[in-house]
Amino acid sequence: MFAIEVADIKKVYDKNIVGVERVSFNIKYGEIFGFIGPNGAGKSTTIRALMGLLKVDSGLINIEGFDCFTEGSKARENVGYVPSELSFYNSMTVRKYIEFILKQKGRNFERIDELCTYFELNQNRKTGELSLGNKKKLAIVCALACTPKVLIMDEATTGLDPIMQQKFFDILQKEKKKGTAILLSSHNLNEIQRCCDRVGIIKNGILVAVKEIGEFQNKLLKHIVFETKSNLLEFRLDGMEDLKVEGNRYEFNFNGNLAMLINLLSGIDIYNISITDVDLNDEFLRWY
């Protein structure tokens, strides 16, 4: 069973504004899935649907086998959630707030001290007095303190300093090893590439690509552009993706057998060629 299952969901808001359409992905236990896209692409809509804050118009959306809207309380029992917009009850202290959230989740208070020490959070301060970075830390502590099986984090590192970001990634890796399924939405492509196993790219409400991060890290994926004087009737090879042809200019990504590719290219009258490693930034910009 997948921890998170999203199958062909669609959500249209009032005035026919499409939130998401044809979004499908699954996340296994012990996996970190990155979710990237610009503002208004549909990331928050997808996450809010997962958290039961809105009902999708069609499609399947489950956490641990429970529908996120009709069986929301069961779906969220083992979920730790960090929203992008943070707002707390200002008069409560950090400690009291975390205890309140843990009671709402039916958890004990075992991990509070450990996590607050780890993230250097003062438990006696009122939540209304916290800076943005400290509010983020508080939200992260609340999500982790409930020993979740699923973590859903919407721009969790916004406002964190580089040291806290590193601590955050370290603890994510520990959670991953414990078997926690993690959905991490972010604008920061470097952090996604650094810690995720797979990444989904969303554009205008549609999930346009899901890639293994290993393809980028192991430099297996190459971006090739060449220009030829010949007219090629057919140009095809296993491992070739997203071929674009404009006149005599050929552009594509390749993660197949390089020797076979070089063999094929050597038979073509090429007068200009560029071969570069594809990183996540390139892949993202390709869709925009």
């Binding site: 958290m51 039961g52 804050l53 929301g72 309380s73 959630y81 917009e85 707002s87 959230i101 989740k105």
Partner: peptide
């Protein structure tokens, strides 16, 4: 209005409760 709904309605209690 204060934004706390994101934290209140995303826990294990359902809307009915």
């Amino acid at each position: 209005k204060g934004g706390q709904s994101e934290l209140l309605y995303t826990n294990a209690l359902n809307r009915n409760d």
